[in-house]
Nucleic acid binder design. Structure first.
Lengths: 234, 234
DNA sequence: GCTAGTCTGTGGTCTGACCACAGGAGGACG
DNA sequence: CGTCCTCCTGTGGTCAGACCACAGACTAGC
């Protein structure tokens, strides 16, 4: 029957259980590869395959050498893993671009509403991004990078780590398409000015606590960009 | 200098480029491990580490033997990868439970609204789940499994593969907690009846095209469960 | 007490060797 | 001629062993 658990799955499940049961937590060191190999009765290469998965998913980081920083350490940093997953799925055509954009719309809308109705919101980082985007001589790539950071800072300000990670991942997964879209715009300078104005209006609405306006502005902002660049019909 | 790209990253990036450039697509066979190893000038073990990542993320499936079904084949099935990622991140405490629940609320709300306003919606599968949940003698685990399928079928009916995958992943990541929550309920039978009624009301609102009611019902439905089971305060 | 060299253990990688498996090619047989 | 059966090939799955680079600890020497 299916009583053939693959060796690397044994390792992965063992480590997952250690995480769930609290034997492992953020900052802890994993046993060394050779130790895990011996303990679980599998080859070291199988251990490495499992560790590789955890590393790409952002659960651990590895370092060579010795000392407190060496070895595999649990660091739950979800954004990297989410970005990798979404980017690869889009590349493999598992996620249509339109679905990614629409999902971003849903999440951005939720973030804008949540922030506007949160009296303890902190939009300082977002304001810093707005300032940075005013700099003259920015290339489209630089501008869009700051644009991404602005949206991400809003997501992080909302306090929901899952949504922030998903937003970062969604953005990463379509980064190349967004950049390609900017090249299709005849007058990038004018477009950028429009984006700047939309950003300021959005943050202003959030600061004012106007959830409805913030929701409307963010949806228009995103929809407009994808329509003008022709990335997504509609 | 950080000019030390790790061998498995070379493989991963090579394959990602093949996917992006269309040289690889769903259904295609990857070169054999030994061939990739020779072509890229890395060891076979490094190739395997990269393939393992792609497999866990749901991008490929591998099979031994020979013939058309053997080898590594591109299959972009996002739900498995998303589930694994979210489950592990929750286990590693990268995602607080409350954030997962809140994100689910946002997505379910979006799904309910989208379905209600979509004239071409197909809720047949959801109705089948409703029927199945009426069966007598269901254990809590069985009931909750059907519950998950119901919500997932709604997400899939909305047509957004990204949201469907995220919902599946979010649900998986908190599956054990949801089940544990059911054990805390004094009178599960009554609770299950309440859930049945809420489900039917939700689907009815969707079928009636009443987005506002569907939104309100789904939010109450989810919030209620987590409050009664004491999993999330508030 | 300080410095410089050595030692130890880590991940990173490669090589080679098996195994189980599934299908195809070919021959043996009716 | 058709059918069945055996062998062969190529695949992923796994393991063992061997290096390497690295970073810190440890130690001998000054």
């Amino acid at each position: 029957m299916s009583d053939a658990p693959r060796a690397w799955q044994v390792v992965l499940e063992h480590l997952e259980r250690d995480l769930l049961d609290g034997r492992l937590g953020p900052g802890d060191h994993l046993p060394s590869e050779r130790e895990l190999s011996a303990d679980l009765g599998v080859g070291r290469s199988s251990v490495r395959e499992a560790l590789r998965v955890l590393e790409v998913m952002g659960l651990i980081r590895t370092a060579t050498g010795s000392g407190p920083q060496a070895g595999a350490i649990v660091i739950a940093t979800p954004q990297g893993g989410m970005s990798a997953l979404l980017r690869l799925q889009v590349a493999a055509q598992g996620f249509p671009l339109a679905d990614v954009v629409q999902t971003r719309l849903v999440l951005e809308d939720a973030v804008a509403r949540a922030l506007a109705t949160d009296s303890r919101r902190d939009t300082a980082e977002a304001h810093r991004m707005l300032e940075a985007m005013d700099a003259a001589g920015l290339t489209a790539a630089e501008f869009l990078a700051l644009d991404a950071q602005l949206h991400l800072s809003l997501a992080e300000a909302s306090g929901n780590t899952v949504i922030a990670a998903m937003m970062a991942g969604l953005r990463t997964s379509i980064e190349s398409y967004v950049l390609a879209g900017s090249a299709r715009v005849d007058d990038w300078h004018t477009t950028a000015d429009g984006l700047r104005a939309e950003h300021r209006a959005l943050v202003a609405a959030i600061d004012a606590g106007d959830a409805e306006a913030a929701s409307r502005l963010v949806r228009e902002h995103i929809t407009d960009y994808y329509r003008t660049t022709g990335l997504v019909s509609g």
